[in-house]
Amino acid sequence: MRRRRWRVVVLTIAAIYFLVPLLSAAEFSLRVPGGGYGLGNYLAIAHDDVLLTSLLTSLQIAVLTAVVVLVLVVPTAVWVRLRFPSVAGLLESATILPIVVPPVVMAAGIAFVQANLGGPVFRTLFASSTTALTPFYVVLALPFAYRAVDNGLAAIPLRTLVEAARNLGAGLPSALVRVVLPAIRTAVLGAAFLTLALVLGEIVIARILLYTDTFPIAVVEVGRSAAGVSVALSLASLLFTWVLLLAVSFAGGGRTRSRRTSA
């Protein structure tokens, strides 16, 4: 009973802490000049070509980054768990590095590399923000994606499933695609959405490397001239992330239930 009361108190404090700023922001974003409320700021987003273009650019980077990250992470995590479980700890430490190294330091390093890499390939690569930023965002997203995928793999009897598939005539790639990937789809989706959220919020590297046509930078720029639109935009992207998270938890519902009943 006492524990329940505490729970209510903690939940209430947390709710106030999170909801008050959100509600204030919502209220602010709905204000119209001269008094009253309206959807003007939200409509302004839809009519701002710069914002929409930057959103498209960032989504492009995000999708590309997510694909590269998953192609790198999923087979690696499976391989390590199946063949080299002893190096799992080492790999985990290695994937933390991008978190440990501050983005500013990383950006400085990248700028140095960028300045010293010649040749037409790199010039083409660095010419557009999509191709230039993707490799760096892959590095940034790696720790989160690796953890998400690895947790997904820990939750299934990976070795048994792969061996069962091989025993039934499937090669390792086929076992991976037909059996393992569907079994960890929630984790893979989670990794993809984490990557998406990261790219839609990353500002340090993009700014230092002077790729200013990405969405987060556009949000900051808009904020300077039109605070209401900027707040509306922040709320809209927050809502977008929530919808994604909700989608993940619904997609994961099946497996959570299955684990409970088979335990």
Binding site: I156, P157, T160, L161, E163, A164, A165, R166, N167, L168, G169, A170, G171, V179, P182, A183, R185, R255, S258, S262
Partner: peptide, 20 residues
């Protein structure tokens, strides 16, 4: 010869059914 070409059928201890 690799496992996938051995023509054996195996029943594991538990939890070997493909969950999806």
């Amino acid at each position: 010869i690799p496992a996938s070409k051995r023509d054996t059928g195996m029943v594991f201890q538990a939890y070997s059914l493909f969950p999806t």
